[in-house]
Design a protein around this nucleic acid. Structure first.
Lengths: 217, 217
DNA sequence: GTCTATAGCAGGATAGAC
DNA sequence: GTCTATCCTGCTATAGAC
């Protein structure tokens, strides 16, 4: 915590296991004992390295969650850069791809979205970091990309609402897997994820309206 | 629990306070002591009336959450019935109105969405009830309404994905108030909720595409 | 930096008086 | 049906040996 922040193996293991458990069960349902056991270290290690359980939670966001969010954003920008222009179509598709397929493993994606959705509904100390250093800059980029291509009548707030809605869908299909599987009967295999990317792209562009035409790639 | 299920005042107060607290903090962060104190009754009352804390949680969904979901669905059907036909436009608008304005007080809406989103992300015993008795029948109704009006090329699964996406947006704007307020700078007053209904209707119909034209009422 | 041991308190649940 | 008293387990955090 004090000087050599990275590469203390115990600290790293604690962050890994804490993230997995906080994501899976939520902050209150996880005990420090559970974390230290999973990290194969001593009970006192959390307090030694992070000061408190709460601090460890915030540190999970700083040291694990936020960097991973950056990887997703980079993946998004990369697949956009491969396109000729940033049309709403390419932006919507790149967004869906980055968040549903993207650079993360299934396990990482699961953790990532469980953690953020919990923060969205019930913000804690970690939310400042999430909002100010991750969401706001990314939404600003998206707004800058989309603004020139969308109708003039759309004000700044309307643009933000559009972005939030696209996000809502992407988050939901990652977060509510259990419910989606239950309602569609489909597991989250590669085929279904590809199907979801198609759907999200299409819905983000045309809503219920435009299911006739193909979405250009 | 055994015979006269309703109208035991203590039991009712327990359900009310338990719901409020579970919604606000999540199951694990709430203690039985906290609930019984808020309900102005004895610590032992939870175990007497519900057998256990976990059972009380499930009972909150059965006796409070599900009936309220039914009220929202009725409100949706009522505002649709006032329309000439169930076009995608009227369906989308009625959905947004039912969930964002609808028959619920702000407090009820808050509880309702906190509880369901928690279940969506991390299903418990209560999820069976939510999925089988509330979500699935409602989605089926929506599908029946929308099917005749949408393009023929849309298969059953595509229709379900569209419905899930509309839901994702509606849930998100109720659940992630804190984040939405942070990103837009707007409080959830009547004006903003009306704005959100417009946005959701428009986005559900046309996505990013159709912001030029007005949405007919 | 990692360990053991333990303080100190809060949790769910129950027994039994009323 | 409601209460008090209490059991027992588990929790976070810390002190101090190594």
């Amino acid at each position: 915590m004090s000087q050599n922040d990275e590469h203390d193996p115990t600290k790293e293991r604690l962050l890994d296991q804490a993230e997995a458990l906080f994501a899976q069960k939520g902050y209150d349902a996880v005990s420090v004992r559970e974390i230290t056991t999973a990290a194969r270290c001593n009970l006192a290690a959390v307090n030694y390295h992070f000061g408190s359980k709460e601090n460890l939670y915030v540190e999970v966001f700083r040291a694990r969650w936020a960097p991973r969010a950056m990887r997703v954003q980079e993946s998004f920008r990369d697949s956009l850069a491969a396109q000729d222009e940033a049309s709403p179509t390419t932006v919507a598709r790149a967004l869906a791809e980055a968040f549903l397929i993207g650079p993360l493993s299934d396990e990482e994606r699961y953790r990532h979205h469980q953690l953020i959705v919990r923060e969205l509904g019930q913000p804690t100390e970690a939310f400042k970091l999430v909002a100010d250093e991750v969401m706001r800059p990314f939404f600003r980029q998206l707004a800058d990309m989309l603004r020139p291509t969308l109708p003039k009548g759309l004000d700044k707030e309307g643009l933000m609402l559009n972005i939030l809605s696209m996000f809502a869908i992407v988050l939901h299909f990652n977060f509510a897997r259990a419910a989606v599987t239950r309602m569609t009967g489909r597991e989250y295999d590669e085929a279904f994820k590809a199907r979801l990317v198609e759907h999200i792209t299409e819905f983000s562009l045309n809503g219920l309206g435009g299911h006739q035409q193909e979405v250009p790639r």
